[in-house]
Write a protein that binds this DNA or RNA. Structure first.
Lengths: 210, 210
DNA sequence: TAGATTGTTAATCGATTAACAATC
DNA sequence: TAGATTGTTAATCGATTAACAATC
């Protein structure tokens, strides 16, 4: 349990740090100062030091930060040293793409099964991941200690599936359906609203026209 | 050209307003107060009024906001009354899923063509959208006045394609590749970093464990 | 030791919330 | 007119940036 809640602004920047640190580490860079990272990432050195200090000191005065150590520590903060078992709900185009995207990546995120309502898909696989009837979702989730449910179903079905899972032991839903899910606080929800993203893009194109 | 820049925080909330207003409109709700919208959307009424007032007054004292009018106006702010021509670059699983997702939706976002480096895909289609060789991308973009390039290629190829397009007349890149693209200011970039999103989810699962 | 650079406090900036006068 | 609710100003809160003492 942390002393104080870390702000979403900080959390949102961690994956980007993680990505740059991996590149630097792989490029053989052993240490880096907040100043140098600042000029590479186009953020202030002050922000970098503040961000890292939310989690305790990772650096050393006069030296900077050890690239590999910092990379590993941020990975731990993000929980990337843990294994996560996932299922897909909604084996349409987007769902199948996500499974392919994360399968065989050895990153600790493993799809165990996919679920759909379409009987034509039952028994088929996405890569090596089998597709089963949606009715079996809840039993499967309970029996296999699933951590994350990836939800790629139409808007109209999303809320019902969320309710089915509301009192299960899953820990999070990665929600691609275009609705705000209402779930108990112990189930985390991370939304990926592609339509919203495209609308923001549209805004940025047209913002000087009004 | 607007008087002052609207903050990203405000822009980021517009698509969500838009979605709720559409639902309210379709449910036959003719008018709504900031107070009522506040309780539905779980944001403060004050924020709602401040947000809308960035763009001028859409409401009326003592009455509230006309649902349909407000919906239309937010749509215009987001540029959703305009037509956007798009191409896909990278016809893998994710790219194909995106085309299917937005095709036949009559929302003003139209895919005209897809491009890939894999010769096996040339001549095939995604729905009705043809796949062509990547070499033809630049010519096609110039000849067809493309607004938005949707980039679903591996990290390693993304930067090269961005450079190819840097001095073209496209207006934006919707970037699904896991890199920060470096492009001239007149080309807007909207990133969808799925890995980052999943990492944030992972953090939220584990945040009480340290 | 001297130079470099963090960790951390203080100052600034911007975004959110509260309050209320204007007005439909 | 009286009640309701916006538009807008003021107050608060939080996040970012600047500054610098601590220390490697």
């Amino acid at each position: 349990m942390q002393d104080r809640e870390i702000s979403q602004a900080v959390i949102g920047r961690l994956p980007r740090y993680y990505r740059y640190l991996r590149d630097l580490k792989e490029a053989g860079k052993e240490r880096i100062s907040s100043q140098e990272l600042s000029s590479i990432m186009k953020v202030t050195a002050s922000q970098i030091r503040q961000d890292f200090n939310n989690f305790g000191g990772f650096g050393q005065q006069g030296y900077g930060y050890n690239t590999e150590y910092l990379y590993e520590e941020i990975g731990k903060i993000l929980g990337l040293d843990q294994h996560h078992s996932m299922v897909l709900v909604g084996a349409g185009n987007l769902g199948q793409a996500l499974v392919h995207y994360f399968v065989n990546k050895q990153n600790g995120f493993d799809f165990l099964c996919a679920f759909d309502i379409d009987p034509k898909l039952f028994g088929q696989t996405i890569g090596t991941v089998p597709i089963r009837p949606l009715e079996e979702l809840r039993t499967f989730v309970d029996d296999n200690r699933i951590d994350i449910v990836v939800l790629t179903v139409p808007k109209s079905e999303a809320e019902g599936i969320a309710q089915t899972l509301a009192d299960s032991n899953i820990r999070a839903i990665w929600n691609f359906a275009h609705v705000d899910l209402d779930l108990p606080k112990h189930i985390q929800v991370e939304n990926v609203h592609l339509q919203d993203s495209l609308m923001k893009l549209s805004y940025s194109i047209h913002k000087y026209e009004n």
